[in-house]
Amino acid sequence: MKIAVFSARPYDRQSLDAANVRDDARAAFEFLYFDAVLDAHTVALAQDCEAVCVFVNDRLDAAVLEALHAQGVRALLLRCAGFNNVDVAAAQRLGLFVARVPAYSPEAVAEHTLALVMTLNRQTHRAYNRVRDGNFMLDGLLGRTLHGKTVGIVGTGQIGLATARIFHGMGCTVLGHDPCPSTAFEAIGASVALEVLLARSDIVSLHCPLTPQTHHLIDTAALAAMKPGAMLVNTSRGGLVDTHAVINALKSRHLGHLAIDVYEQESGLFFQDRSGEIIDDEVFQRLMTFPNVLVTGHQGFFTAEALQEIAQITLRNLGHFAAGTPCPNAVPPPAG
């Protein structure tokens, strides 16, 4: 069976090839790797393939799905937990098998969240550059002690829970908000309404999926409800945050800090080397002018352990498709 792997970087190839080994040391499936993002312009690359393997910024709208189906593709394998980039209704109509990786090393994203908070709070990125230039002054590097602060976790699934445990261990008061409250979270924090969480938290960290209900969850009203000077962290999906509203909140000094590993229009930027080009995304460029903003390029998941787990679960999902057996990671999830 041939599988077209889109948005494939060297680390994707390495991890998938390592997982794609049968007991006799031969490859179980034939992977065709493409650096290109899957969209209407690149869909023809999947010709003669029975499945495609995609990542967060690949576009799988109805038109792309119909083109894939017409070429003989029958399975969509997502190397990620979110599936907001897939027209699930169109996939069902076409009878396509869709499976994701619902959880891979939640601690990886949780630890990156902590890294963003600590870096921005204690200005270690700026201190690093200063010291390399021989500047040992501390002015402008003043941080705040996190112990005793209140951290709000929006989305208390596996990643949110792992993040909550880290901050709880640091002596923070942890608040959580989720339409489906986690009993495990109740052991370390208090579940509250979103308005209460925003009003009381010194740090608000987003860990929820992007759905029509959560799109621009953090908008002008939500930002106004946050404590003056609070920090907003997003390591989930860029569309959770209204970037224009965030810029206004930063300009007014109401939002104290912003740390993001995701961006609503990241598909044209992230996972690419644009260092020798002019970036014409004016909203992103405006964000980068603020000294109290820290941006990383969707690397929260990027650990050796997570890549290995993503590859293994992806191959397991592919095995279910090949065998015609029920897949626990199907999208939408199987009944029951």
Score class of each variant (00 low, 15 high):
267 S>M: 08
225 A>G: 09
210 L>V: 07
243 T>R: 02
194 L>N: 01
229 G>R: 09
231 M>H: 10
245 A>R: 08
250 L>T: 05
265 Q>A: 15
258 L>G: 07
223 L>F: 11
192 V>R: 02
263 Y>K: 02
238 G>R: 02
212 P>S: 12
214 T>D: 00
194 L>D: 04
184 A>T: 02
199 A>H: 11
216 H>N: 15
222 A>T: 10
193 A>S: 13
227 K>I: 04
183 T>V: 12
270 F>L: 06
210 L>G: 07
209 P>H: 05
184 A>W: 01
206 L>P: 06
183 T>D: 14
266 E>C: 06
198 L>W: 10
187 A>P: 14
257 H>A: 09
224 A>W: 01
247 I>R: 00
244 H>C: 06
199 A>P: 14
242 D>G: 05
244 H>L: 13
253 R>Y: 14
266 E>T: 04
263 Y>Q: 03
202 D>K: 15
203 I>P: 07
275 S>K: 06
189 G>C: 11
206 L>A: 05
276 G>S: 13
186 E>D: 14
220 T>K: 08
254 H>M: 07
260 I>L: 15
213 Q>N: 03
248 N>I: 10
241 V>L: 05
226 M>L: 10
238 G>I: 04
232 L>E: 03
186 E>T: 15
256 G>F: 15
261 D>Q: 09
271 F>Q: 10
218 I>W: 01
259 A>N: 07
249 A>H: 02
247 I>Q: 01
245 A>W: 07
244 H>Y: 08
270 F>P: 07
243 T>G: 02
234 N>P: 14
190 A>Q: 15
245 A>H: 08
205 S>K: 04
233 V>N: 01
249 A>N: 06
201 S>F: 12
236 S>P: 04
235 T>N: 00
277 E>P: 03
210 L>D: 00
233 V>Y: 00
207 H>C: 05
231 M>D: 09
199 A>Y: 00
195 E>L: 06
242 D>W: 02
235 T>F: 04
212 P>K: 00
259 A>S: 09
